[in-house]
């Protein structure tokens, strides 16, 4: 198949055919795409306000088309992100309660933190310090669960404060005026945390660490080689391989998709680093 087209097969799979594990569904990949595009859009239109005294902030606002344009695009991205988020929550609830898939809320396939995650953190840190072997992770490692729940936390804090400021006269009927003072601090600081976290920790943990450098394409293509699956998520591999749920495929992700993902990924990572640099400098100056 396309294995030869993309290069030499990895060591250990010299038997010509590389098999692929499907890690993410099309829906999950789209969700991530919407998430990072709107996140970037929100960061680009929101950070100039948080750091409005920096020269770059003013020129950026002018490039976008002024104060009204910045607010328009910020709200535009916010609405799309909110819709995607609610669709996801709706789907999780549907799978859990209507389809009665109990694995959604508990167990190795769930994103709900498990006792094993505490053990994994402990053992992972021990491995960092040469005190023990590298732990084997299941479908979602603890840092991935943290990323996932951070979005919920962020949506609750940034989303709620943002909507109350957008519809201030309406929310002022139920909330005191001093809430809007608090809302701006919550919105801005939580957004700053999100931006710094994503552009450093998330970028490193999932894409830039030596095991995945420069980019882990699995969130774009949905597939990773069986070999990588085994190494990165050993516990899940051992649990599933050879069973119907762990079935692999010989169909490689299309080359155009991988190149497209690389292009988008490079753009996002570079933009992220630029924003990280600008905000860090502005923050330290203030």
């Amino acid at each position: 198949m396309s294995s030869r087209a993309a290069g030499t097969p990895a060591a250990g799979s010299s038997a010509a055919e590389v098999r692929y594990h499907v890690r993410f569904s099309l829906g999950q990949r789209y969700l991530h795409a919407i998430l990072f595009s709107t996140f970037l859009g929100l960061a680009l239109t929101g950070l100039p306000l948080r750091f409005s005294h920096s020269a770059w902030a003013a020129s950026f606002a002018h490039i976008v088309g002024g104060f009204a344009a910045i607010l328009f695009f910020h709200k535009f991205f916010a609405v799309i992100l909110t819709a995607a988020f609610l669709t996801h929550v709706g789907r999780v609830l549907y799978l859990g309660f209507i389809k009665r898939q109990r694995g959604v809320f508990w167990g190795p396939n769930s994103l709900v933190p498990q006792p094993k995650d505490l053990k994994d953190i402990y053992e992972h840190v021990r491995w960092f310090l040469w005190l023990g072997p590298r732990p084997k992770f299941d479908r979602f490692a603890y840092w991935e669960k943290f990323d996932y729940w951070a979005v919920f936390w962020g949506m609750a804090i940034i989303g709620f404060s943002g909507y109350t400021m957008w519809f201030a006269p309406f929310f002022a009927k139920i909330l005191p005026g001093s809430w809007f003072n608090i809302a701006l601090v919550l919105h801005g600081e939580e957004a700053l945390l999100a931006v710094w976290f994503i552009f450093t920790v998330h970028f490193f943990n999932t894409h830039l660490r030596p095991d995945s450098f420069p980019m882990d394409l699995v969130i774009f293509t949905g597939k990773e080689s069986e070999e990588e699956w085994k190494k990165k998520r050993g516990e899940e591999y051992e649990r599933l391989h050879g069973r119907p749920e762990g079935e692999t495929t010989a169909v490689a992700p299309p080359r155009w998709l991988k190149n497209f993902a690389r292009l988008i990924g490079t753009f996002v990572i570079l933009t992220g680093f630029a924003l990280l640099w600008l905000t860090l400098v502005a923050f330290l100056k203030a």
């Binding site: 250990g12 920790v201 490193f204 030596p210 990588e228 190494k231």
Partner: peptide, 28 residues
């Protein structure tokens, strides 16, 4: 997470230098 990331980077960089990796080949 900053500390976590730094420790992780140092450990896995050395890990890689020793020829070990979680990479699943170029097809990953």
């Amino acid at each position: 997470f900053g500390l976590h990331t730094i420790l992780w980077f140092v450990r896995s960089a050395i890990h890689h230098a020793q020829g070990e990796s979680e990479r699943g080949g170029p097809e990953a």
